[in-house]
Computed example of a mutant assay.
Amino acid sequence: MSRRNGIHDGTVNVAILGCGRIAHHMAQTLHDMAGDERYSTLIRPYAVATRDDDPRAERFADRYGFDRAYGSYESMLADPEIDLVYVATPHAMHARHAIACMMAGKNVLVEKSFTANEEQARKVLDVASQTRLLCTEAIWTRYMPSRRIILDTLRSGVVGTPRQVYANLSYPVSDKARMTDPAMAGGALLDVGVYPINFVAMAFPEATPRSVTSSCVFTDRGVDEQFSATFWLDNGVAATIDSSMVSVGSRQGVIQGDKGYLIVENINNPERISVFDADHRQIDKILFPDQITGYEYQVVSAAKAILEGATQCEEMPHEETLRIMRIMDSLRAQWGEVYPFEH
């Protein structure tokens, strides 16, 4: 069987490390991609691994049509047929698992947040540089077609000169053990707050914060439960974001200019853009393309990058991952939030 850049017949064998909730979403995506003529020759749902639980891995593999099931991460990483590993473990484990994958010769797609802090992110990217393997952050909104459509709409001038932006993402998810566990880098920021931050960064890619004012409320275990922050960008835009893991939020992204404003419904998986003029009349509604789940775009980007011999994806380059981690570190510094493993 021929190989291109180490890949069998140009098809990338994808494995999932971890079997939690997010892993199921990715597995369903890979299953559906394998049955879609647009993607079936590009990727193959190949393997899944749990930590010390063979039956669970086997049930997962059977459910989604994976070829291999492993009851330990180490045994999966020893499989020479794996080309790309999707790291689907909690934030605090991302750095360790991503590095283990690359040291085993596997390219990695690391679920957001990339790591728990910038220091960890730099260690991961140092290994990526040493191994010359693909390493990219799996924050799906960065890879979706909606990103370009939102930016094109904004740059068309339909709302005039942007002056303010507001973005929210909030879900009641505090019942999940990892979300309230400091040792797992729990809290609203890394899990849901990362999306409003990225929304602002994608809308104004050339802008950087001049100053930040923020505050948060902690859980009784000392992780951020909900927070708000205002970023004064160097392009003159005031960006206000908020997130919570105990409330249902609007999920909206609102960009306001001197001629009107636009509303993006659901910044976590954009559904449409509504455009309003200065008199609050809706003048346009823009829909986004149909998709399998939305996860397919990051998989396609990673697979193509591997086939091309690239070490990062243009949708989320390493420097941008570091910049977002740095912003989140700065927010936690304002709040005095320190994870136990950071002491």
Rank of each mutant, 00 (worst) to 15 (best):
T29D: 10
R4N: 14
G35I: 04
H24M: 09
G20Q: 10
M26D: 09
M33G: 07
A34W: 10
H24R: 15
A15Q: 01
R38D: 12
A27H: 09
M33H: 04
V14S: 02
H8S: 10
A23W: 12
N13R: 07
A34C: 00
S40V: 03
N5Y: 06
I22C: 07
N13T: 06
N5D: 06
T29V: 05
L30N: 00
L17K: 10
H8D: 11
T11G: 00
T29R: 02
D36M: 05
T11I: 07
L17G: 04
A27Y: 05
E37N: 10
D36W: 13
A27V: 09
A27W: 12
E37A: 14
M33Y: 08
T11E: 05
G6V: 00
G35N: 13
H24A: 11
S40L: 05
G6P: 04
C19H: 10
Y39R: 13
D32A: 04
G10E: 03
A23P: 10
G18K: 08
N13P: 00
A23I: 08
M33D: 12
R4H: 11
E37S: 14
L17C: 11
L17N: 07
R21W: 01
V12N: 01
H31C: 09
S40M: 14
A23K: 14
H8Y: 15
T29Q: 05
Q28Y: 14
T41L: 07
H24E: 13
H8M: 14
R21M: 02
A34S: 12
V14W: 02
H8F: 15
G18I: 05
A15D: 04
A15N: 02
H8G: 05
H8T: 12
A23Q: 13
A34H: 14
D36S: 04
G35E: 15
M26C: 07
R4S: 11
H24D: 06
D36T: 03
M26P: 03
H31V: 02
A27G: 02
H31R: 12
R21A: 02
Y39Q: 08
G6N: 04
N5P: 03
L30C: 07
A34L: 05
H31Y: 14
M33E: 13
H31K: 14
R4F: 11
V12D: 00
H24T: 11
Y39C: 03
A34K: 11
R38I: 00
V12W: 02
T41G: 04
H24L: 05
I22L: 09
N5T: 03
D36F: 01
I7E: 03
I7C: 04
A27S: 06
I22A: 05
I22F: 11
M33S: 08
R21L: 00
D9M: 15
D9A: 13
Q28S: 03
H31G: 00
G18T: 08
G35D: 15
D32W: 04
I22R: 15
Q28R: 12
G18F: 10
M33F: 05
E37F: 15
E37W: 11
I16F: 04
D32L: 03
I22G: 08
R38Y: 06
R4D: 07
V12L: 09
S40W: 03
A27K: 05
Q28K: 11
C19I: 15
N13H: 12
M33I: 01
V12M: 01
G18Q: 06
V14I: 14
G20N: 13
Q28N: 09
A34P: 01
D9G: 02
R4C: 06
A15H: 05
G35R: 12
H8N: 11
L30G: 01
N13M: 06
A34M: 09
Y39E: 10
E37C: 08
